[in-house]
Design a binder for these strands. Structure first.
Length: 421
DNA sequence: TCTGGGGTCCTAGGACCC
DNA sequence: TCTGGGGTCCTAGGACCC
């Protein structure tokens, strides 16, 4: 632990909306929102949309009236575009800092400890550079711990006078700032914990900061104690520069409409399994455990709810799509029950090893290289689009395919989708 | 009609062992 | 009538993040 650290959190403003605005300036100053997969929930809102009272994460149909009345512009998620824009933003940030932790698609922590310049000036110039080269506006919060840099970032976003940058380093009255911060706004305090804390009279970050350690440990577990320690200015969550090897990889989707037939569900499951396998293969991993889950809609009061999952541990780890699909289908046939309207399913792979480093097995030869068939499929799909070659069990079905009514094109990643001026 | 997807970590409790 | 103690490992469920 070190008390003299400096962290900055760079967070893109309404990231998905900002990405759309880069390619369509007419969207500026207008209420714009972006939707989750299947056009379900609102997961990004422009300032103007927030001002209309549209809440984060709300299902689109619940705010239909406002959307229509106020002419809110609605986009389906264009992850290809957002991921590419994110990569560009992160590249610029890495040029400004010795170490960077890409925390999510629209956020990164950097370590500014020991930098000789004025932190705020430095952040302002980073902010201007990102805006100039990508068109994406960001907010930057600076603090002596990651948790405090998050607090600072909230302030930078909320207070227009600050022009997107807020530093709590050498700030005289942090307690005053924390007192104005709701306990649920603190990074690491979610809905459940904040309800629990408020019941105990702890409703702002300052009160949380001065709670007794043992009490915190009991109420919020070990991670909660780290959060509180960070509020006090002692850093215990370091920058995680190298992305550790993942522990699981899943592909799950809400179906575009309820599915009743096992056949349709098998096809969706096969596609989930193929996509998850492709992803681990591209990361040089093999999986030894496969889980499949299936459920009806938890919101549908008119139908009985059913949710089940099961898994298989393979006798040797693999990244062979066909093997993984076959096992996923065995599981889904086992958990499927006739007579339910299934709304969501997914495949989760885990128990990873690096390819070629699988534990020795008495009965099989370890595959030292990727099966040729898989390599060939990956090459073709990479070149001609991700679903060009599918596995027969997927059957090119479209029954479960998701809704995506209003999606922009891949402006930055496909040559024939370039913006025409 | 319509409610996302992809992760991580911690804890409690049960199974099992000697 | 009275049924140990200490340890490990696994899993499900619940919390968190974006």
């Amino acid at each position: 632990m070190n008390d003299n650290k400096v962290f900055a959190l760079i967070d893109c403003n309404a990231f998905y909306v900002s990405c759309e605005r880069v390619f369509n300036p007419k969207l500026n100053h207008r209420p714009v929102v972006a939707l989750s997969n299947n056009d379900g929930c609102i997961i990004a809102r422009s300032k103007e949309a927030k001002a209309l009272g549209i809440k984060m994460g709300v299902p689109l149909f619940k705010v239909k009236d406002i959307v229509e009345k106020e002419k809110v512009i609605v986009f389906s998620s264009n992850y290809t575009l957002y991921a590419d824009m994110s990569r560009r933003v992160m590249n610029i940030i890495s040029e400004f800092a010795p170490s960077i932790e890409v925390y999510s698609i629209d956020e990164a922590f950097i370590d500014l400890t020991g930098i000789k310049l004025n932190y705020e000036d430095y952040a302002k110039s980073l902010r201007a550079t990102i805006l100039k080269y990508t068109g994406i506006p960001v907010s930057i919060g600076i603090g002596s711990t990651k948790t405090l840099s998050k607090v600072a970032n909230h302030i930078a976003k909320d207070d227009e006078k600050l022009a997107g940058v807020c530093s709590l380093i050498n700030f005289k009255d942090i307690d005053n700032v924390l007192e104005k911060t709701e306990v649920g706004e603190v990074w690491g305090v979610g809905r459940r914990l904040s309800e629990k804390l408020i019941r105990q009279g702890i409703n702002n970050a300052k009160l949380l900061k001065y709670c007794d350690d043992r009490w915190i440990r009991k109420m919020m577990s070990i991670n909660g104690l780290k959060t509180v320690t960070e509020l006090r200015g002692t850093s215990c969550l370091p920058i995680q520069e190298i992305s550790v090897t993942r522990k699981s990889c899943c592909t799950t989707r809400t179906f575009g409409r309820p599915l009743l037939d096992l056949k349709d569900i098998e096809q969706a499951t096969a596609t989930f399994a193929r996509r998850a396998t492709e992803r681990i293969r591209s990361e040089g991993l093999v999986a030894s455990s496969i889980s499949v889950f299936l459920r009806t809609s938890p919101f549908d009061r008119g139908n009985r709810y059913y949710s089940n999952s099961s898994s298989i541990t393979l006798s040797y780890p693999t990244c062979d799509t066909i093997c993984i699909i076959n096992n996923a289908l065995i599981i889904v046939r086992k958990i499927f029950k006739q007579g339910y309207k299934y709304k969501k399913g997914g495949v989760l792979l885990s128990g990873f090893h690096n390819q070629g480093e699988e534990p020795p097995n008495l009965f099989t030869n370890t595959q030292k290289e990727l099966p040729k068939l898989m390599l060939t499929i990956d090459n073709i799909n990479q070149r001609y689009g991700s679903d060009t070659i599918q596995i027969a069990s997927e059957c090119h079905t479209t029954k479960w395919k998701q809704k995506r009514k209003n999606c922009t094109q891949s402006y930055t990643t496909q040559i024939d989708k370039l913006l025409l001026v």
